[in-house]
Design a binder for these strands. Structure first.
Lengths: 197, 197
DNA sequence: TCACGGTGTAGACAGTGTCTACGCCGTTTG
DNA sequence: CAAACGGCGTAGACACTGTCTACACCGTGA
């Protein structure tokens, strides 16, 4: 921590600010202020505000990947069960760390190319595709099923986060929606949920 | 058009600017400039920038609702077919009018309450729910299936628009993803797609 | 004719991201 | 040892943003 250079400190402080105050709070100048440097200092490491935000978002992707890998390692071997665990981790991450998730999927960030999206999210997507391929022979190619499933999870996360789905469906938690999503794309769970009771 | 008051003009000009230049271009001052008034003028009708944006987004919702109603009126009576038409209109709208769609689903707008989301999108959601209820007896309640389907369409629209799905799946158009989404949530189409050939 | 109220103007203010010129300080080099 | 250098951070400027406030204009009603 003591040998933390300014670059790492900016990403860390910015991330903390994001997680605490939300996505509207992470201006370049405010991050610099909290890091104890002048507003021009970040420019040495991040030529642009967007590039600093990209580094913070990137941290979010790696955090999520770590969460997912840990959960999958502890999950049963059945691919369908693993997919359920993955989906749960995804939604939990989006809800618990709303600001981070919003930043990670900001359109201008994703389109800027700064994220290096190929390097970060593509392995995750391939993981998803592999699990889908193992879990279920489908008329559609696994990549298509995985893409549709990912889109469904993303939509669920966003719509749930800003309350549209509670408003529309009257649900108090996203569990039923998540269950319906998984069943729709992957079929019913291999071992029924009441097996835990 | 001649008797267009400033309020309507601001919404129209702002909408045109949005559709032409994208979501980053619609600052309050730029809209005022293009409407030919001073930067303080909008304040008389929209106390806040966000409220002007809400009016523009609201216009988008009503446009989409009109499109959807027209398409559904011309569609076959079969509920499953109607749902396919609805989904196609949804995705087309999101792709063709990307900036408008992005604005309509901006988190700070949706959370602000200015949109009057209940009045605008709830009827659309109920329409979706009714069609789902007619189309398919499902173990999940229709509202849940409709919610999951809506989330899937939204996720598809966003991920497709910023290129993540082309990158991940290699698809050149979202048709296969849309088809997979519909089949997942609603089962196979009643009349197979090759009936048109 | 005059007062008034609604409408739009214009300037100020704090805040933002970016750019540029300038100091500081440790390292390397002569 | 002294001097030049280069990386790092500072500080001020600039254009732009959204918001607030005081002020003109102008048609309408008293």
């Amino acid at each position: 921590m003591a040998d933390e250079d300014l670059r790492a400190r900016l990403v860390r402080v910015g991330g903390e600010l994001l997680d605490q105050e939300g996505i509207a709070a992470i201006s370049l100048r405010e991050i610099a202020r909290r890091a104890g440097v002048s507003h021009g200092a970040p420019r040495r490491y991040f030529p642009t505000h967007l590039e600093l935000l990209s580094a913070i978002a990137r941290e979010g992707f790696t955090d999520f990947a770590a969460r997912a890998e840990a959960a999958l390692a502890a999950a049963p071997a059945d691919p369908r069960a693993k997919l359920g665990v993955f989906a749960r981790v995804y939604l939990d991450f989006a809800v618990e760390r709303r600001g981070r998730y919003e930043l990670m999927f900001r359109h201008d960030l994703l389109r800027s190319g700064y994220l290096g999206l190929r390097d970060i999210s593509l392995p995750l997507f391939h993981l998803l595709t592999d699990l889908v391929a193992q879990a279920r022979p489908s008329p559609s190619p696994p990549a298509i099923v995985a893409g549709a499933l990912w889109a469904n999870l993303h939509g669920l996360a966003e719509l749930w986060n800003w309350g549209s789905l509670t408003l529309a469906t009257g649900a108090t938690d996203p569990d039923a929606l998540l269950e319906a999503t998984l069943t729709a794309h992957l079929g019913p769970p291999t071992s029924p949920p009441e097996a835990t009771a």
